[in-house]
């Protein structure tokens, strides 16, 4: 016996809560007397509930999101560097256009490209039209720096939380060292050093106190 026609489209829409309100009541009525549709709705609902449950387990942890902005700006800076280089190359083609006219059409020649690359690297002809791109690049770089600094501060905060709330000196030390590495070339390394020093003297004090307690 063929299945009820409503047991596909309408049953799926009902299980998915997509049925327009005008169709919902009549379908509910239909369910009371149709075994096919009742079974179909039950199994679609079960499949959807299982899927929802499994999807809920996929959570992006906060720390994975931290570097997104910085990496976007890094990606932008890298591509801008590339385009600046390419436009410098093409501008050079134009500037040396007349004496080497035919080279332009034979640009695929690897010899020509090698020569031009060498020439570009040595002569660096002035390119006023690149100003905008360079500013954009500088702004990307400034943002990378800002996000790096933010990252350093986050790691410092995390290390302090580990230290004060979880009282885990070993983990604090490795977090501080990671932060110090990340902060290479900035004054934040001094902050890291200071914290590491405090941590060391704290551990030392506790060991001494323990010894006194033992004695």
């Amino acid at each position: 016996m063929p299945k009820c026609k409503k047991s596909e489209g309408q049953a799926i829409d009902y299980a998915y809560k997509l049925l327009p309100s005008a169709e919902e009541l009549p379908f509910k009525e239909h369910l009371k007397s149709c075994k096919d549709c009742t079974e179909a709705v039950e199994s679609y609902t079960a499949a959807l509930e299982l899927t929802d449950e499994a999807q809920e387990e996929l959570v992006v942890p906060e720390h994975a999101l931290r570097d997104i902005e910085m990496n976007v700006y890094k990606r932008l800076a890298a591509s801008q560097e590339q385009t600046t280089w390419l436009s410098r190359l093409s501008a050079y083609f134009t500037s040396v256009g007349s004496p080497f006219g035919w080279y332009k059409t034979a640009a695929v020649s690897s010899v020509a490209i090698a020569l031009i690359v060498a020439a570009v690297l040595i002569s660096k002809p002035p390119q006023p039209e690149q100003t905008l791109q360079v500013t954009e690049m500088q702004s990307a770089e400034a943002r990378i720096e800002a996000y790096r600094e933010q990252g350093i501060q986050w790691n410092l905060e995390e290390a302090l939380i580990t230290h004060h709330l979880r009282n885990d000196a070993w983990e604090t030390e490795s977090q501080l060292n990671r932060m110090k590495e990340q902060a290479q070339g900035t004054s934040w390394t001094k902050v890291a050093d200071k914290q590491l020093q405090n941590l060391q003297s704290g551990i030392l004090n506790r060991t001494q106190q323990n010894r006194i307690g033992e004695n």
Partner: peptide, 27 residues
């Protein structure tokens, strides 16, 4: 970033790829 990352994580089911594609989306 969180919405796009989790959408991509559900879709590609690989942590690093989801992160790379998220960066690519904003780029």
């Amino acid at each position: 970033k969180s919405k796009i990352f989790s959408y991509l994580l559900r879709s590609v089911r690989n942590y690093e790829d989801a992160e790379d594609i998220t960066i690519e989306v904003f780029f």
